[in-house]
Amino acid sequence: MSESLPTPEQIDALYKRLDEEAEAGGYHLNPDREMTRRLVEGLLANQARYGYQACPCRLADGDKEADLDIICPCDYRDPDLDEHGACYCSLYVSEAIVKGEHKVRPVPERRPDDPAQRRQALKPVQAEPGAGVPVWRCRVCGYLCARDNPPGVCPICKAKRERFEQMRLTVVLSA
């Protein structure tokens, strides 16, 4: 397969943009700059190859619909940050890793092998008490999000995770 490699300028530009966006949203890029630069290069290579920035550490199908869950940032980033302190590729890492309190360890693949299971969360679920996705409220600014756990930092006002409360409300997603 012939490919044009991304130029150093393109890599630097995307690196800078992703870094700014991450910090603005309460996320952090991996401080291992060599690794991060390679991953950014991989994103650009996939952009050129597939037309979208598929995850550099996963085998993309090339069909956008089939790859939607692994377009960076992927559906699995936040659960992996919660559980392992890094996304699968380690492009995004937790604050503890940025501070050097933990090291990046290999993150096991959480993406289901079976394509039918990948977007399960979008299938209709029974609207019984406790079903669905919990809703979290930032007590500082009122930002609401529906996900398994609150974000590490409020993307709006930057309040820390512990400032979030779970609301007596769940969201039932349907396809």
Partner: peptide, 9 residues
């Protein structure tokens, strides 16, 4: 994978 940082490493 040619794009994967851990594979390169």
């Amino acid at each position: 994978l040619s794009t994967c940082g851990w594979c390169r490493r």
